[in-house]
Design a protein around this nucleic acid. Structure first.
Lengths: 105, 105
DNA sequence: CAAATGCGTAAGTTACTACTTACGCATCAG
DNA sequence: CTGATGCGTAAGTAGTAACTTACGCATTTG
């Protein structure tokens, strides 16, 4: 149903920890909750958000659900950030050149 | 004083719009507020968050305050995201190799 | 089949966040 | 000096987000 904004999903520190953990090694909900200072249901809810944001994948495995990082989710973020970056760089250069022409010529 | 988590700062859509606008062209608060669906004080508060997150800079200019994007703030984000990315890629490759050895040999 | 395990979700609470209007201070124009 | 402009901040509010405990369903184990 409703999707989740990718940036907003990463706005939460706990969620970033979960994602970092999952990036390192896929794992079940109980597994992930073991290393975190919050309850298992909380982790389950966070994983739901990450799932809707397209940052993780689930795969049923017996009575567990194994979550893993989704590469294309990270890729889209990377692309968006890169757009910010390159435009900032370009405009910074432009401003510097303007300064040069103003003071130099 | 207190700083602000960079990711959390970008978690808000309005703040991303402001940053995108400032990346394109530095401007005063009133300037920025003109293109946005929120009030000027709201923009001012958001700029405060972006400032504490190290994503923008201010420079007084007469009775205006000109905000501009901060390149190193974006750079640190880029680095952190890149770390996620490369580790995900590496581990994905490792898992693929494990699969190969399990099924192939 | 019965007990145990792993999970999602419902329900409720608390805390924060994004926004508004109102105000007060500084700076420039006439 | 006087009025106007640009800004930050205080104060209040509505919505949301992160967490908890409790429960119920599915799957494996003995």
């Amino acid at each position: 149903m409703g999707s989740v904004d990718t940036w907003a999903a990463l706005g939460d520190q706990t969620r970033r920890s979960i994602l970092a953990r999952v990036v390192r090694q896929p794992g079940s909900v109980t597994d992930l909750a073991r290393d975190l200072p919050v309850s298992r249901p909380a982790v389950s809810q966070h994983l739901g958000v990450l799932l809707r944001a397209g940052l993780v994948d689930v795969r049923p495995h017996g009575r567990q659900r194994i979550y893993s990082a989704r590469l294309d989710g990270l890729a889209s973020l990377r692309g968006e950030l890169e757009a910010f970056w390159s435009e900032a760089l370009r405009n910074l250069k432009r401003v510097a050149e303007d300064d040069y022409h103003h003071t130099g010529e």
